[in-house]
Amino acid sequence: MGCVESLPYEVILRGSSFKESRDYVKEHFKEFINVKPGFKIFDTHIIGIPPIAIGLDGDFVIFPYTKPCHGTFLLRVEDPEEAKRLRARKQE
């Protein structure tokens, strides 16, 4: 299990519903991919209601992170390698 908490993240949305975080990604980022729950990102299996939208903005990856007691956070992390990996998947 990776530890998202250890990443240098920026919180874009806090305490939102999962649907709100998905809508935010689709409305604010021209580039995004849809993945299924359990998809691995930053070595963590992502939680959510399919389809899960992951935004891409240059070297930044924007993704939802859900905790049982705190709801869904939309996080932005700068990671050129992960962004590249996700873009390659988009072209599959």
């Binding site: 519903s17 959510g48 209601i49 399919p50 859900t66 905790k67 007691c69 705190h70 709801g71 869904t72």
Partner: peptide, 8 residues
């Protein structure tokens, strides 16, 4: 809402 995400 988080519980719904875990169930899905």
């Amino acid at each position: 809402d988080a519980g719904i995400s875990y169930a899905a």
